[in-house]
Design a protein around this nucleic acid. Structure first.
Lengths: 331, 331
DNA sequence: CTGAAAGCGCTAACAC
DNA sequence: GTGTTAGCGCTTTCAG
């Protein structure tokens, strides 16, 4: 920058003004500056700039996702990337893998990079530790799951209602023995979805068979093995509700291995890329990721811009998409 | 930091030393510093640090991918994220969407954030513009496609050989009329894969029917429509080689719509999440993303660490995985 | 409309 | 082992 000022015969401040598009700069000088910059191949150092800049803003936000390689997270990431770019922000992303420690580490790491705000699909069970950061001026938004012991903006799907709708759908096709597959109930979404399952039975006045509720498999292989055993047993269900995409995959693999994909009905929660190419097509409860992403980042950017109104909880509806597998009737 | 020094009764430099794990610090002072830091909730500002630090390194690398939402890119991203973290680096990622301008913009944006290096799955057709940045000390690595008019490290798959193997596989099952679906030949991988297709025919001494070669569809819908027309025509192929995952999806949708999935053989290039759940299972040529990711980032980190040996081209083999759809014989 | 001086938070270099 | 001084590249403040 000094060199640019020298070569263009101006001062540092004028160069700075040019690159910050301050309107009150003599067009002649501006031209000289730009020419000099081009010749020296000068690109301003944004990170140095934010050091002294008014509010210390870095125009960077951090995003903590479950696993950037999984379709749910990567779709969200892309939405964040685009909306952030529109607003002149850049995104730092990290994967949590359901690990609380990793959440803490990444929060610290990103704060050490001075992100203006952080969007978290939390793995942690307690977010009181963030209060100190909030006091230091970092803004937080939660996605997919609410914060615990902290008041902050959050965007959620209708996990409970969506699950209930899925199970009611199965019941409406005549199913009474419907298995539930879910994650560990410590996870908010898992808990909600399980309650939706139970609520559907309650509403239909059917007793829930607890031996058909499966939670917290250790691995996909273990899930598949358990499922295959279940399918072969006397107590085999006539339908299965898989409350999450990895579990849905496990169900499909198990059904495939047993050759039962046209016999046992399946509804899965969360999108799966090739759902309609399967036979039968896979009936799903889809989350509206575009809307979830949009709401969460826009709310966060609003906070960074100074909106200090009360914390907001926004809920985005899911959609049941019948594709075939959920419309199989019990034999 | 000043406050921490004050509260702990030491100097700035000692605080700095503590947070940079300099071993020659009196344990007593170190303790005082850490206590004060905790009390003040102090987290060092890395970006300020890198301003003055020896080499000006930011421990940040930029990654330019085709589209962070697609499985190919997001799988790579995750590998980069993990390996970068192991080495104390952080990753900035952006999507190119096959747009040259976007490539230029993001390179500039990331350089304005002073990344130490940049990994690019390029959309551009000319990378001479990067020479200036190379001279300024930014390091570059290319992934998936080579740079043009620039000497730089690159990691590629065996696109040509993998495609040839796929088509030979189809030929070995008795196919002679094999359609080729590819991207615009301006794209390196598309060109290579098409050559592999042609080479397989040459080797088998079968004449290529140019009316079975399809390139550069505008949209998935257009691809599906064209394919359905083709499948219904007199000149329908007995097998299809789709040289990229989105095209493979289009083929599957078209086959499904026509009810021909058990009649026409298909081999696809690139992985597809639910390949083995389809019926028939989908025969694929898989790229070794883990290896591609590992090699590319490790080479880049080596460059950042000062390795200035000649530019390296590394080639990672693909694997043909028969799953059913590629083993259908012509009727 | 422009420039000089001070300082953002930190680390290099050099004393002590 | 520790502290002081200068300065990274930029923006602020304030005087011209």
């Amino acid at each position: 920058m000094r060199e640019v000022a020298a070569l263009s015969g101006t001062s540092l401040k004028t160069v700075s003004r040019v690159f910050n598009s301050v309107p009150t700069v003599d067009p002649v000088l501006k031209d000289q500056v730009l020419k000099a910059a081009k010749r020296l191949n000068y690109i301003p150092n944004m990170t140095a700039g934010s050091l002294r800049r008014a509010n210390g803003k870095t125009n960077t936000i951090g995003i903590l996702l479950e696993d950037t390689a999984n379709p749910f997270s990567s779709a969200l990431y892309r939405i964040y990337e685009d909306i952030a770019a529109e607003h002149g922000y850049i995104v730092l992303a990290g994967s949590l893998d359901e690990d609380q420690n990793r959440e803490h580490e990444l929060v610290n790491l990103f704060i050490s990079r001075r992100v203006d705000g952080l969007l978290i699909a939390p793995s942690g069970k307690d977010h009181a530790y963030l209060k100190r950061e909030v006091r230091n001026g970092v803004h937080f938004g939660f996605v997919d799951r609410p914060p615990i012991n902290l008041s902050a903006d959050v965007v959620l799907s209708t996990n409970r209602e969506g699950s209930q709708e899925a199970v009611e759908h199965l019941i409406s096709f005549g199913h009474k023995r419907i298995a539930y597959l879910g994650d560990n109930p410590g996870i908010y979404t898992a808990q909600e979805r399980c309650e939706g399952y139970v609520a559907a039975f309650k509403k239909a006045k059917i007793t829930v068979d607890p031996t058909l509720i499966f939670k917290g498999f250790e691995s996909e292989d273990q899930a598949i093995t358990s499922l295959r055993n279940l399918m072969r047993s006397e107590k085999a269900p006539t339908a299965i509700f898989a409350s999450q995409n990895l579990l849905t995959m496990a169900v499909l693999r198990a059904l495939h291995a047993e050759g039962l994909e046209h016999k046992i009905a399946v509804v899965g929660f969360d999108d799966l890329p090739a759902a309609e190419l399967l036979s039968p097509g896979l009936t799903l409860v889809k989350q509206n990721l575009a809307e979830i992403g949009r709401l969460s980042i826009q709310t966060l950017l609003g906070r960074i811009d100074g909106d200090s109104s009360k914390s907001l909880t926004q809920v985005v509806p899911t959609t049941l998409v019948p594709m075939g597998s959920g419309e199989i009737r019990p034999k």
